[in-house]
Design a protein around this nucleic acid. Sequence first.
DNA 1: CGCCATCCTGATCGAACGAACAGGGAACGT
DNA 2: ACGTTCCCTGTTCGTTCGATCAGGATGGCG
Lengths: 214, 214
Amino acid sequence: MPSRSAAPTVRAPRPSADATRERIVAAAVSLFSELSFDGATTRGIAARAGVTQPLLNYHFQSKETLWHAAVDSVFASLEATLTERALGLRGVDELTQAKLLVREFITFSARHPELHRIVMQESKADGPRADYMVERHIRPMYERTIALFSVLAERGVVPDIAPVHLYYILTGAGPTMFVLAPECRRLSGVEPTDDAVIEAHADAVCSLLFGVTP
Amino acid sequence: MPSRSAAPTVRAPRPSADATRERIVAAAVSLFSELSFDGATTRGIAARAGVTQPLLNYHFQSKETLWHAAVDSVFASLEATLTERALGLRGVDELTQAKLLVREFITFSARHPELHRIVMQESKADGPRADYMVERHIRPMYERTIALFSVLAERGVVPDIAPVHLYYILTGAGPTMFVLAPECRRLSGVEPTDDAVIEAHADAVCSLLFGVTP
DNA sequence: CGCCATCCTGATCGAACGAACAGGGAACGT
DNA sequence: ACGTTCCCTGTTCGTTCGATCAGGATGGCG
């Protein structure tokens, strides 16, 4: 029978803590995506967030835990964007749905290249971080993408290509220009953050995948 | 006036040194591509090469120099493969040339995913390593690719898409499945090193880019 | 044969890393 | 008003990194 005094009083967290937590996560997303997990240092992340380094271990158990929070953050943003778009497209035919969802995906990848930068870094080798990211975030999106492509393939509105290949063509052709934005700028002078460039790229990918520009 | 004894006698290097140098470079390619520049350690590279760690600093000035050697090695392999293929296609019409070069490029990316893994890591941020890789290796291939696409676009055999977009669609759609091979295996069960899978992917990309399977 | 450049190793350096610790100041509950 | 909890910082620990150094073994050349 526990006495009342033995139970430690749990006090509500202060709102300022959430704000700094978010600043740290944003800095972590930025640096993890640019420098990879090993290249980004906790001191560098703390500096970009404007806090001291030990604060990272106060809010997050370890560098690994902070990485999880950063990955959860960027994927939550993508999932929110896509599900919101999908909800607005209920009742529309699947081909139009697919076209607009692909455009939304490409636009998101252009505005948030950090996501695919992190995916590219971690998914090329097995490991605990790849485990977490694939099972928690990538697989659900993969399953939904495959399902949509399968429906479209049955109706013949998409070329007769196995969905796995279509998936990697889409996730390769769509974001790469923006993942490699610094290289693109230097090679071609094209600025991948320009709205016109983003739209042109979405047009290009859609015209190849679906035959015509929507 | 230098005396004869003051000039250090230069002796021919032994062939065994070249062999170990190559083993080190091969190990470096392997680890740099898997773990990125910061994630790969000189001790790890030495271990995979079967030598001791200080030997890396004997054969290469620094970790950075070893990275240059590794990058030069993988790009030399790609350039040799593509130029050999191009030489065998002299006199063939440009469309067939493009189709077969794209297939060769995809096959190479599947058999040597290390190249695009390294490119993806370094080209997402500016820096001395990105400088080196872009100016020394990527830009020449980019120029040639753009030139070929421009010719094809004039003849109307390729969709009316700005060459920059076609370039990043090709370099994204082609190699991504093999760059992310571990993820692909886990997600779909498909083995990206299978010849049949490689061929299917090349078919898919070619059919989207050129309309029909060659 | 004997010298010496070449090839390689064991030991070790300073620097930078992630993490832990002790403590201080601000804010909330009583 | 007081005490406890929360939020944050300065300092430091042990480890691991890339790089250096002294020295041993090997093999070609005079």
